[in-house]
Design a protein around this nucleic acid. Structure first.
Length: 490
RNA sequence: CGGGAUAUAGCGUAGUCCGGUUAUCGCGCCUGCUUUGGGAGCAGGAGGUCGCCUGUUCGAAUCAGGCUAUCCCGACCA
């Protein structure tokens, strides 16, 4: 049988797509630009959800749910916000279908036209702020720290599984505060939560920073982001946290009486991460054998594959395997014992490698004789033998070790691909090679746009704690005080 | 929304130029036997409104016209 995956180098985007389909994470749906997330991919999302949700609770947030449909009028109150999303909205115009006059098929009933069209949410700022207006009268009502787990729709022209689908799953936090300082703190707190989650659980190193004006969220005063680097050298925005100032409060007339008994508009933030993170995961760690999942979020951490000749042999192996499975499960490790007779062991090895299961334990007659098992770690594909009694005790440390080494490998790749450029020639060459390019920029949107037109690279972020140094803009030669990170991005 | 292409079984395809028996092949699927320490072998089997509509014709996957959908390159984007 042919090799499952073509080399990543030849056609990265096709490789990416094939991997996701073959690893049974997701596939394109019948609806253009939408995807079906299969159980394996979804359980990964559930793990991510569970961990993130715990982190949100710890930072004092609560979950709520707001409507999918947003009246068009809400949407137009914040001018720059509508401008940012208007071009990619799904719009509900009718509420009924009827049988076609010719008797063939179903058509939209023109009599059932809505007075006011409804927009399928591309993000929920508008409907949430319309609701917050009713919740807030006094500083005693603040802060409001709400999060929503939901789906949103953005009618993108070009789509890719997980990275850019017309419908995607995410969480969006929307908070209201009595002061700018408090809102800014919240914005920063949440970008830190995201960075922690992505680095510690997904093992993807990120750079924290702020967006340039051109890349900022529609309606925000400031956008903080975490940027990751994919194996093909393109950058991916992995999460954002926005300081919205009083823009939405003013648009939706959300005022409160402060401690000095004066009316003021509330200060807002919003922040979100999406199923796009799964795309980031795939493109950060995978190799030619398939996915490589960090143990902390892998739907399945350990798989046990039996090797046997006949029914009797299987029974012997199963006894040991089931015992081991139970012991591992007592340590909160998720284990699957795959004793299906319909697949041969070699095929199972390949399937679980494709799915990125961190550890495979193989047990066969040869092992039973020696009272040992074979352990193969997915990240390095190294095999070793271990006494059966020692496996349970060693497993937590092994999983941690795999988690760490996946992160270090990705970090080394990322660090090796941050290149400084001081002349335009260096800059063009570095962008062409892929990775982050650290360069001086005169701070103007015109220059940023001009660079994008010439090289397709955009400013990914202005890193926090960026060293201040004198320099000259890479394009215009005008004076600059700090370097920013450029890259071609997804 | 501009430019280009494609549509044949679950997937990938041959056949289309030059119309003519029962639409080709591979993967996958089902059954049986042999296998099982790195994607098995043999034998048998199921599966098709040839994207849709109209036309030309004795006869259309094949020719003509229209429609629809999808993909690629731009613009847009978490």
């Amino acid at each position: 049988m042919a090799k499952v995956l073509t080399s990543r180098q030849e056609n990265y985007s096709q490789w990416y797509n094939d991997l996701i389909v073959k690893a049974e994470m997701a596939e394109n749906s019948a609806v253009r630009g939408c995807m079906v997330i299969k159980p394996y991919g979804y359980s990964l999302w559930e793990n991510m959800q569970r961990i993130l949700d715990g982190m949100f609770k710890q930072t004092g947030h609560v979950n709520a749910y707001f409507p999918l449909f947003i009246p068009k009028s809400f949407f137009s109150r914040e001018a720059s916000h509508v401008e940012g999303f208007a071009k990619e909205c799904a719009v509900v115009t009718h509420y009924r279908l009827k049988t076609d006059a010719t008797g063939k098929g179903i058509v939209v009933d023109e009599d059932a036209k809505l007075e006011e069209e409804l927009i399928v949410r591309p993000t929920s700022e508008t409907i949430i702020w319309n609701t917050y207006k009713n919740w807030i009268q006094s500083y005693r009502d603040l802060p409001i720290l709400c999060n929503q787990w939901a789906n949103v729709v953005r009618w993108e022209m070009r789509t890719r599984l997980f990275l850019r689908t017309a419908e995607f799953l995410w969480q969006e936090g929307h908070t209201a505060h009595e002061s700018a300082e408090e809102a800014l703190q919240e914005t920063e707190k949440m970008i830190n939560v995201y960075a922690d989650f992505v680095e510690k659980y997904m093992a993807i190193p990120v750079i924290k920073g702020r967006k340039s004006a051109n890349e900022r969220f529609a309606g925000a005063i400031d956008t903080y982001c975490i940027e990751a680097l994919m194996q093909d050298g393109k950058a991916l925005q992995a999460g954002t946290s926005h300081f919205l100032g009083q823009n939405f409060a003013k648009a939706f007339d959300v005022k409160f009486l402060n401690k000095e008994n004066k009316l003021d508009y509330v200060w807002a933030t919003s922040w979100g991460v999406s199923t796009r993170l799964i795309g980031a995961l795939v493109m950060s760690h995978s190799d030619d054998n398939g996915l490589v999942l960090p143990p902390k979020i892998a739907p399945l951490q350990v798989v046990i594959v039996p090797i046997y000749r006949d029914k009797e042999g299987l029974e012997k192996v199963s006894k040991v395997a089931v015992e081991l499975k139970t012991r591992l499960e007592q340590l909160n490790i998720s284990v699957k014992y795959d004793d299906r007779d319909s697949l041969r062991s070699g095929e199972k090895f390949n399937i679980y490698e494709l799915k990125g299961v961190p550890v495979r334990i193989t047990i066969g007659p040869r092992d039973l004789e020696q009272n040992q098992v074979e352990i193969c770690r997915r990240d390095t594909l190294e095999k070793s033998n271990m006494h059966i009694q020692d496996v349970a005790e060693a497993m937590p440390r092994l999983l941690e070790d795999i988690q760490e080494s996946i992160f270090q490998k990705a970090k080394k790749f990322r660090d090796d691909h941050i290149i400084k450029a001081d002349t335009w020639e260096e800059f063009e060459k570095a962008i062409e090679n892929g990775g982050f390019v650290s360069a001086h920029w005169d701070g103007t949107t015109e220059t940023e746009v001009a660079i994008k037109e010439k090289t397709k690279a955009t400013i990914r972020c202005i890193p926090f704690n960026n060293p201040q140094e004198e320099g000259k803009c890479i394009l215009t030669g005008k004076p600059s005080k700090e370097r920013v990170l450029f890259a071609k991005a997804y």
